[in-house]
Computed example of a mutant assay.
Amino acid sequence: MVELIIPQRRRSLGGGLEIGRVLPFVKQKMVGPFIFFDHMGPLSLPKGISSTVDVRAHPHIGLSTVTYLFSGEMMHRDSLGYEQAINPREVNWMTAGKGITHSERFERARAIGDHLHGIQAWVALPFEYEEISPSFSHHADDDLPQWRANGIVGQLIAGSAYGLTANVKTLSPLFYAHLDMMTGAIAEIPDGYKERAIYIASGSVEVSGSRYGAGNMLILSASASSLRALEDSIVMLLGGEPVGPRYLYWNFVSSSEARIAQAVSDWQTGSMKLPDADDAEFIPLPEKQSIQP
């Protein structure tokens, strides 16, 4: 059964880029280690779009960012020197650890126009890994197991589920999967994890006899075992083992409030390296923020 419904809350990131914020939610801060979940688009980006729509350089600590697209292209650049375009059904996995900065830009859209639709999630790092050295990896094709059966095209983005394991380095038990479901298709929900959720990116599904539409995350009980597509739908399945409570302040995640304060100071004083191509352009610390446990 469904224990909680979390509707996306539309947010503008400026420059015409709008997202649907799902996690964190006041009644559900995390799902397993997933502490942040944004639905990007769907949004048409015309040729020649202003650079104000880009996500300028910004910092992270204590988490991994997971970028996954249904359509469109984004260009990732980070302070480790990586520059990597991400396309549909690929994964950019960036582990911030003790600190990293990156930008995400829409250079293809600027050149020829594009249609952006995807998900950005954050995975909180276990306590013993919060201060590891930052890293970045890109995954596609054989790294991400795919399957087709009974009206479903599935892809495992990270972790283990459906008897498969993605070749993406994770630091705690989790699963993250993308299902394209035809009308009437029935999908099993992975079990064996303490916390699980479904996010309906498009279409509508039935769980335990009730209908749920696009833009909703469903927090599941241990008894939930399957879902049925009521129309052609894009569904994300996610979950894992909890890593404990975390403080969240802007782009920083940590089990320590003092560590958050240090990261804030580091960003304000300019002591965190920016991506080489972004030295003159970055996002300043927002004025109105609060540290949330």
Results as ranks from 00 to 15, higher is better:
residue 12 S to Y: 07
residue 248 L to P: 02
residue 293 P to N: 15
residue 39 H to E: 06
residue 99 G to R: 08
residue 151 G to D: 14
residue 187 A to I: 06
residue 127 F to V: 12
residue 243 V to E: 06
residue 93 W to A: 04
residue 50 S to K: 10
residue 3 E to T: 09
residue 149 A to L: 07
residue 90 E to G: 14
residue 19 I to S: 06
residue 56 R to G: 09
residue 241 E to D: 12
residue 84 Q to W: 14
residue 148 R to V: 15
residue 221 S to E: 14
residue 183 T to F: 08
residue 124 A to Y: 00
residue 182 M to A: 13
residue 102 H to N: 08
residue 76 H to C: 02
residue 142 D to Q: 11
residue 263 A to M: 04
residue 244 G to I: 12
residue 20 G to R: 03
residue 153 V to A: 10
residue 43 L to D: 00
residue 137 S to C: 08
residue 237 L to P: 01
residue 10 R to D: 12
residue 202 S to N: 10
residue 284 P to Q: 14
residue 154 G to K: 07
residue 260 I to V: 13
residue 5 I to C: 05
residue 176 Y to R: 00
residue 155 Q to T: 15
residue 80 L to H: 04
residue 253 V to I: 14
residue 198 I to P: 10
residue 195 E to C: 09
residue 39 H to I: 01
residue 282 F to S: 09
residue 55 V to D: 02
residue 213 G to A: 15
residue 116 L to Y: 10
residue 261 A to E: 12
residue 266 D to T: 08
residue 215 G to V: 07
residue 38 D to L: 08
residue 94 M to Q: 13
residue 42 P to H: 13
residue 34 F to K: 02
residue 93 W to C: 01
residue 275 P to V: 03
residue 62 G to S: 06
residue 156 L to V: 01
residue 250 W to G: 02
residue 6 I to T: 06
residue 160 S to T: 06
residue 18 E to R: 05
residue 175 F to P: 00
residue 15 G to M: 12
residue 125 L to G: 00
residue 273 K to H: 14
residue 29 K to T: 14
residue 1 M to I: 11
residue 3 E to M: 09
residue 184 G to D: 12
residue 262 Q to M: 00
residue 108 R to K: 02
residue 128 E to M: 07
residue 200 I to V: 09
residue 24 P to R: 07
residue 25 F to A: 15
residue 83 E to D: 14
residue 289 Q to C: 13
residue 121 A to G: 05
residue 260 I to W: 00
residue 153 V to K: 11
residue 272 M to W: 03
residue 268 Q to C: 15
residue 199 Y to I: 04
residue 59 P to F: 09
residue 250 W to E: 00
residue 139 H to L: 13
residue 122 W to P: 04
residue 225 S to L: 06
residue 53 V to G: 05
residue 241 E to L: 14
residue 278 D to M: 07
residue 92 N to R: 13
residue 18 E to C: 07
residue 157 I to W: 02
residue 149 A to N: 14
residue 212 Y to L: 10
residue 82 Y to S: 01
residue 178 H to C: 10
residue 63 L to Q: 04
residue 131 E to R: 12
residue 179 L to F: 11
residue 137 S to D: 05
residue 135 S to A: 07
residue 121 A to D: 04
residue 145 P to F: 13
residue 86 I to C: 04
residue 9 R to G: 05
residue 250 W to A: 07
residue 156 L to A: 01
residue 155 Q to W: 08
residue 101 T to G: 13
residue 155 Q to M: 15
residue 263 A to E: 00
residue 110 R to F: 06
residue 276 D to V: 14
residue 146 Q to T: 12
residue 283 I to C: 08
residue 80 L to F: 09
residue 279 D to A: 14
residue 211 R to G: 11
residue 52 T to N: 13
residue 249 Y to Q: 15
residue 111 A to D: 01
residue 38 D to S: 05
residue 293 P to A: 03
residue 89 R to T: 05
residue 39 H to Q: 06
residue 97 G to C: 00
residue 56 R to Q: 11
residue 151 G to V: 03
residue 123 V to K: 01
residue 208 S to M: 06
residue 76 H to W: 02
residue 152 I to T: 01
residue 215 G to E: 07
residue 113 G to M: 14
residue 254 S to G: 11
residue 60 H to V: 13
residue 90 E to A: 13
residue 292 Q to K: 13
residue 229 A to N: 04
residue 107 E to T: 15
residue 78 D to Q: 04
residue 229 A to H: 04
